[in-house]
Nucleic acid binder design. Structure first.
Lengths: 350, 350
DNA sequence: CTGAAAGCGCTAACAG
DNA sequence: CTGTTAGCGCTTTCAG
């Protein structure tokens, strides 16, 4: 990588404007306390020289970085296979931008990367961290806590130990699942199966709980564990159908899973929703509209979650959450945790 | 955002180990030139104190940041609607990680953000930039060039002016399109239409060129411009069908477009591929496998593009491109530009 | 209201 | 081989 051309320093601007460095600094940072004729001269010098403050120098003294890290820990290949993170990222980015804060993305592909991330966070590059850690046994959260950086988690963290006070933002997975299953029941369906996601992820576990809430605990023969992928959905529905041939509905833990299930149904000549009704979760577009038939599903405001995470981190405790948002337990940490409502989107599959 | 706890400094470590700051610095940065008994003492002090070097201070003197910016300029909502960027990001992240370099993500939602990005790049936070700028009239590239930061573009830049020497990595869009259309022709299809993408994007323009290469210039009535979305694909195919009712094949500029086209075909009762064969571009999964029928399409190695972009930026001119990669014109800048080969994936739609 | 001076934490000559 | 000495570019008291 070739060298970056040397940029003008505060010194240079000061010289050109015929003032001291301190004065230039004042003008550059808001300009209060400098009288007009002078300030204008400084601004002109800044423009002429194309001066841009050196952030490293600034951080060194202010101890602020105007940057937050987004840590996405997902060993599996699936990480970006669905637009889920991407959408949250977008929400985060919008909110950070509004606060003139940079987004530093830290992707970890496996445990080897954890040390690197820990070092980075501890290295004082950022003012805080937004962390997506999906698995129960993930060592990352502990590592991050040790780094002593303010943190907000995306999705309810699953470790019971010292993490109780972690701030997080999540969708109402359990409530959404209940809505989905109730919808199916309301359609007159009786043998409602559930294809759940990997239970070491709280979102999957919570959706399963929601299903059980409505199904009175749920017959184990009606539940198959899967992995949030289309292929997994195919396999799981196959099992379910073999076990309970007269199934009349299935609630899939996410849309990807549902799409796999749909494929199996079509292959076996079963009509949706006449023979079997299907409900997904996520409202992942364009997939959810593109399946045959289009998927009835539980929408969560993914971008909104991202935005809220950033807001929580930036504002710290204090400001009330905006708009129509449910509010949940949470405690200390960087403020309350937030649980966003979900919404059933009716299409043709149920 | 609450304050980060004060971290131990080099000074503290030095005191604890009973050596000078310089010695600690040496040990921390590779440790050459420090005799063993001492070095060990230093390392222990580092561990005990949990010392992590302050990057701001380090950058201030070294002028290096071990960080690269990824700039994604995409005003439309579509940005993250498809996993395209996500996949490239992943490739980039892998390569950067291997070089112990951080990824700083800069998303721009509109022109208002350009200034911010320019400032950031010029602010000397990063050693280089990886830029995705899709539109011909995008002012960002010029802005970036002014910032004087080494840059590699994702996708062939489209401005003819002073940008000629920009380094970039791209897929062989034109060649891939030729392959697709030849495949259709090889199937005996004669009235092959093309739904192209927005022509202010080089990828769309190049695919159109590839189509024309094979179609001998191409009958304008067989070409409809669209916008890389399913809805756009629907609309475009509708027009095409109205204009040329006896169409027997269509090459869509991407899989999203193709999926929309498929939907129209199904709605009109036309069989695929019997009545009309369809080929897409991207091999975007799971979509391409999930459509009905599964899509024949042109695969590009998206993650590989990302990896190569990072490599190009980091290694600068010099190291040869790895593996089975085509090599294209390119010039000065940060090294050669690279054009990666594409591959036709045959499924049921053509 | 403006300038002078100190120092953030670190690396890189330069001595010893 | 190790320690001493200067700054990197900026903000921030503290005087004037």
């Amino acid at each position: 990588m070739s060298e970056t051309a040397p940029r003008p320093t505060l010194e240079a601007v000061a010289a050109r404007a015929g003032v001291s460095r301190a004065t230039v600094s004042r003008v550059v940072n808001g300009g209060d306390g400098v009288r007009e004729p002078l300030a204008a001269r400084v601004r002109r010098a800044v423009d002429e020289l194309g001066y841009v403050p050196n952030q490293a120098a600034r951080s060194l003294v202010t101890k602020r970085h105007d940057a937050v890290a987004v840590v996405i820990a997902e060993p599996e290949t699936r990480v970006f296979a669905d637009p889920f993170f991407a959408r949250q990222l977008r929400g985060i980015s919008k909110e950070l931008t509004a606060h003139d804060t940079q987004l530093v993305l830290l992707l970890t592909e496996g445990r080897e990367d954890h040390a690197r991330v820990g070092r980075y966070l501890a290295g004082g590059h950022v003012d805080g961290a937004l962390v997506f850690s999906l698995h129960l046994d993930d060592p990352l959260p502990a590592l991050i806590q040790r780094a002593g950086v303010p943190t907000v988690f995306g999705g309810r963290p699953g470790w019971s130990d010292g993490m109780r006070e972690a701030a997080y933002v999540d969708s109402d997975n359990r409530g959404g699942a209940r809505t989905a299953v109730r919808h199916l029941a309301g359609l007159g369906r009786r043998r409602i199966a559930h294809i759940c996601g990997p239970l070491d992820q709280t979102s999957a576990a919570d959706r399963l709980e929601g299903y059980r809430d409505v199904m009175d605990g749920g017959d184990p023969r009606l539940i198959a564990e899967s992995d949030f992928t289309p292929a997994g959905g195919e396999r799981a529905l196959g099992e379910l159908l073999d076990r309970v041939p007269d199934l009349d509905a299935v609630f899939a833990a996410n849309d990807l899973t549902a799409s796999g299930a749909l494929r199996v149904l079509r292959a076996r000549g079963l009509r949706v929703p006449e023979d079997i009704a299907v409900v997904g979760f996520d409202d992942m577009l364009p997939l959810a509209e593109q399946t045959d038939p289009p998927l009835t599903t539980v929408r969560q405001d993914i971008e909104g979650m991202g935005r809220l995470m950033a807001r929580l981190l930036l504002r710290g405790p204090g400001t009330a959450p905006p708009g129509p948002t449910g509010l949940a337990g949470g405690t200390g940490g960087t403020g309350r945790s937030l649980v966003l409502p979900t919404e059933l989107i009716r299409r043709a599959s149920a």
